[in-house]
Design a protein around this nucleic acid. Structure first.
Lengths: 228, 228
DNA sequence: CGTCGACGTCAAGATCGCGTCAAGGGGGCT
DNA sequence: AGCCCCCTTGACGCGATCTTGACGTCGACG
């Protein structure tokens, strides 16, 4: 399941893209302006972002910069402007691709596929992490306890678990966690981390009061220890 | 140093691209056809490949397929053909980007930069410093004793250890330590250093009273000696 | 031999960060 | 429209960590 965020101020284009993408099996979010786009991106964590440069309010290039402060998600730019300086600015701000309107839907879809392929390929291996108490399947986005029962995680819980599990043994700073899960404006809300780490431990740790796998490093961050 | 492989059958374009890329500090290989391209790619392992679709002999799309059998190197396609089906084929064969001729050099360079940026980010190097008594993992922010037991450091302790370990064998002034850990207003508080160095030695030195690794240079600062 | 400066040690109070609980509100699904 | 789940937010207690001061030790130097 690939989630695509489309940002454009023209309702027709938005509708056209949504229809085509949904028909290909994508899950689609749409945003009419930059504000909504940044907000949605932080909450829904799209796998690909398609953004129009000519937006009301925040400029498209600034949307790209805003995203790039905290995520490496592939960004495809749409634009009616042919000027080379526009393209260079958008690409150097962190965009991955640039398509000029009018564009063919087939081409755009092919570029989306290329973006997906790039993002998924590096970690295709070893998508399952096992511990003595539970198993995390990163591609299926599932957690299974040692006794084979499935464990349900909320989106936010999963997001945290995913980040920690992808860096086994490494300390992940609270800033980084907050930024990646909630967005760059939440770097100070260490409260969230405490609440959610407690919930995660309740669901995954044999003894939530004595964490073996999700270790707190006071004042610094959290660490996932696969060995326990 | 980034190595770029340019594949095109028109000598002028080849020369133009080489000149521009070399001027930007890239190392450039050129190939006039697909055979030479695949051969050069295998031998020189480029970081980015720029390939023209209209090649004599092997088709450009087949060059892409050939590369994709063994490498994930970013591939940028150049082409005079505007047809959408061409673009879709090239992208689905594994290309990352597609630029139609005539193209602006600034745009192409920006797309090369975008490719580079994507490729470099996922690689995080391991920074580990070993001594006979303990091992410091700078990326995981972890210290392990010689007997494999983990050693817990507080944030301040870790900060000090990190600075010293990153300058092995070198003397680090007390001013510098105080400034980096506590801030510029604490440059005179050499007390702090004494307290924390004592704690660090208690945790890491086999004989805290006779430091082997964290050496005091009276009146000047401290030094980390990996050999002990 | 005495003094002085710098360092190591220790202990106690203040502060900070963490885990926990619970209530409120909003959005999605039926 | 109603319900339920999830996210947000605040308060509280406890333990760990930081800060701070005092004291002992050692070596250099006069």
């Amino acid at each position: 399941m690939t989630r695509v965020l489309v940002v454009d101020d023209e309702p027709q284009i938005l509708r056209g893209l949504r229809t085509n993408l949904v028909a290909r099996g994508y899950v689609v979010d749409t945003a009419p302006d930059g504000e909504a786009a940044l907000d949605l991106a932080a909450r829904h964590r799209p796998d690909v972002v398609i953004v129009d440069l000519g937006l009301p309010g925040i400029d498209g290039v600034d949307v790209i910069r805003g995203l790039r402060t905290w995520t490496a998600v592939p960004i495809i730019v749409l634009s009616a402007r042919e000027q080379e300086s526009e393209k260079v600015d958008a690409l150097d701000a962190g965009a991955d691709d640039y398509v000029t309107k009018p564009f063919g839907m087939g081409e755009l879809l092919a570029r989306v596929r290329a973006s997906e392929r790039r993002a998924v390929s590096p970690d295709a291996e070893e998508a399952v992490v096992r511990t003595p108490a539970f198993t995390v399947d990163l591609t299926a986005k599932k957690v299974v306890a040692a006794d084979e029962t499935a464990i349900r995680l909320t989106p936010t819980e999963w997001h945290l678990v995913e980040i920690l599990v992808r860096h086994p043994g490494k300390l992940v700073g609270q800033r980084q966690l907050l930024q990646e899960v909630w967005g760059p404006r939440y770097e100070e809300e260490t409260n969230y981390l405490r609440v959610y780490m407690a919930q995660i431990r309740r669901k995954l740790e044999p003894e939530p009061a004595r964490p073996r796998f999700f270790i707190t490093e006071p004042g610094m961050g959290y660490r996932f220890e696969p060995g326990g």
